[in-house]
Structure formats: structure tokens, C-alpha cells
Amino acid sequence: MTRLAHISDLHFDRVDPAIVKGLRDELNHDRPDLVIVSGDLTQRAYREEYRSAGAFLRSLESPVLAVPGNHDITYIHLAQRFLDPYARWRRFIAREIEPTWTNDQVAVIGLNTARRMAWGFDWSKGRFGLRQLHRLNKRLEALPEHLFRIIVAHHPLHPPAHAPDLDVVGRADDALACFRRNRVGLVLAGHLHRGYVHVDEIDQGDAPRLLVVQASTATSTRLRGEPNAYHRITVRPGGRVHLEVRAWDGARWVAVAARDQGAKLTMGELPFHAPEVEEIAGRENAPAGLG
């Protein structure tokens, strides 16, 4: 059995310190085998934000696997953005932007979907590259057959059914086809600050049914009508996945029911706590750097 914690969209320094402390204490009290962070560790990729994010990750007693999000590339210093967009990531977070973690049961592979530029004015949407997917094929083919395969990326592959106009990552269909072909059983992502689960409708025979899990923001004050939350995931022998959603109720993390891809959140179903500095993200499709 492998126990994972999936956190996303930390957004240092747009955080509630009480929630950050509560998350650190809970993860260190009941330590998972791995903490997975699916992007947007910072708000504007400033040096101090990276320092805060790095200090938080180092305070965790479990190993950490993290991938960048669109907020982790500067929108201010254009020379840095285009010439060396991950310099601060490598300095404060990790040397790799597409890391891998394995044990005797699972393989977790990080993919970077953030892009330094894109067509149009909104550079926040993210994209899978064709060469990136080709490299992923080789990475997955090299894994032992018995390992349960998990992909971590920042941007969503499916919108929630009640909000179908929300953007998904570029080349989502190509990526999903690659995942299915290589028997990936679980995808973890964030970006939308909404938590929901999508079960792939395509039968893969004896391969596990692909489960795509979107996380809300774990610590940010920039909410989109949902509480701060994160996931506890248990992978049991045979690739059976148990998902527990943990939401912040203002004083502690509590277990709440997971929502499937088509379910709309009705406030009152989940504990909803306005952070210390409430900053509701008002636009569904925010412009570059504000998503």
C-alpha cells in the first residue's frame, strides 16, 4: 500500500498562515509516502515567494515531488522568462521540473505544462508538447510492468461539466491517448482552484480505468467558491485507488465527500472558511498570470 498527499496551487505569498501551518502539521503528523505538488507554488514567481514555498516544502518530513505551474514563471522579468524561466525553481524548489518517484508499487511522473509563451494574450493555459509526449512514452515504456502509473501536471485535462467553458490544457486529447496507451491509472492536476474527479469512459481492457483528479487550492486566499482542500490518496495492491478529500473548516482539516466531474458544488455541502485575507478570484477565465 502506498499513501500519497496531493496538494496544489499554494500561491505563496497569497496564503493564510493558519492554513499553511495546519497543512504542515497534518502532513507531518500522519506522514504520507510522498507529497505531490501540482504547480503554482508562487503567485508572481518573485524570489521571496519562492523562498517561502521552498521553506514550506523543506519543513515537510515526507519526500516531495513538485511540478511548476503558470504562476511559477515570471510575467515581470521578460529576459528571465524567455531565457531561463526555471532558474528560481531550480534554486529554491528542485533541480528537476519533470521529476520521477518510484517505490515497489507505484511510479509517479511529473510533467511540466507551463509555457513561457503561447499564441494569443492568455499565456496561462498551458500545453503538452509533442516531443514531451514522445519522451513520456519512453519513460513509461521503461517502467516495470507491475508499477501503477501516476501522472502529475498543473493544468486540467477535463473541465467540470457544470462549467464546460473553462479552459483545459493544450493537446489534452493527445495526452490522454498517450496515458491510456501506456496504462496510466491516475492523473493529478490543479490550476482551476476547483476539486472534482473524472473517470475516463474509455474501457482499457485489463488496464486500470484512467482517473483524473483535480485539486482545489490548498493554501491560497484566492478562492473560486470552494474551500481550501487537498487529497489523501491510497494506492492498494492491484491498482485500487482510494481518494479522500480533506477541506479546511477554519480550525482543522476534515474529510469531505469527493465530487465527480459533473457535480456542481452547492455551498453548505462542504465546510467553507474565508481565509484570513479573503481574495475571491472573480473571473472564470483569468488573463495571463491571473489564472
Rank of each mutant, 00 (worst) to 15 (best):
D72V: 04
F148D: 08
Y75D: 08
I150Y: 01
S220K: 02
P85D: 07
A177V: 04
A163S: 04
R222G: 03
L211F: 02
Q80R: 13
D9R: 08
E226L: 05
T217M: 00
D40P: 10
E284F: 03
E141N: 09
P160S: 13
V235N: 09
V277Y: 08
A53L: 04
D249N: 14
I19W: 12
F272C: 07
G289L: 12
R131W: 01
W101M: 06
G289W: 09
A79D: 14
R91K: 14
P164K: 10
H146Q: 12
L211H: 02
L83N: 07
L192N: 13
A118N: 06
P99D: 13
V256Q: 04
V67Q: 02
R171Y: 00
L186C: 09
S38T: 15
A189E: 05
F121E: 13
L4E: 11
L176H: 00
R209N: 03
V15D: 01
A114P: 08
V184T: 01
V197L: 08
P17W: 07
L223V: 08
V277S: 14
G39V: 14
R252F: 00
V64L: 00
R224Y: 09
R131K: 09
Y196W: 11
L4G: 10
Y86G: 14
R127M: 11
H273V: 13
A53S: 04
R58C: 12
K125V: 15
H71F: 00
V15R: 02
G185Y: 02
A18W: 05
T221C: 15
L290P: 03
V152T: 01
E26V: 15
A215V: 11
T2W: 03
R180W: 03
G282Y: 10
L27P: 08
I36Q: 14
A218S: 14
F82T: 11
R283G: 11
H198Q: 15
L143P: 05
N285F: 09
A172F: 04
T217S: 10
G126D: 03
G54D: 12
W248D: 09
H77G: 02
A189W: 00
A5T: 10
P271S: 14
A215G: 05
E96T: 14
G120F: 01
G69D: 08
E284W: 09
L211E: 10
A207Y: 06
G205E: 06
S8Y: 10
I150W: 01
P160Y: 04
G126P: 13
D122V: 02
E279S: 12
D173I: 03
H191A: 04
A161F: 03
F12Q: 12
K264H: 00
A153I: 12
A215W: 01
I202V: 13
L57F: 07
V35N: 02
L265F: 05
R240S: 09
L4T: 11
D200P: 02
R47M: 11
H242S: 08
I73N: 02
L211M: 13
N285Y: 12
T42I: 15
I151C: 01
V199G: 05
W101L: 06
R95F: 08
H231P: 02
P99A: 15
P271R: 03
R58Q: 15
P156L: 08
V241D: 11
L10N: 07
F92N: 03
D84N: 13
N285S: 15
V67C: 00
V20S: 15
N28D: 11
K21H: 15
V187F: 00
M267N: 09
G39Y: 06
A255D: 11
R135W: 12
I73A: 01
R222C: 11
L188R: 00
D33V: 12
S8L: 07
N228E: 09
I36S: 14
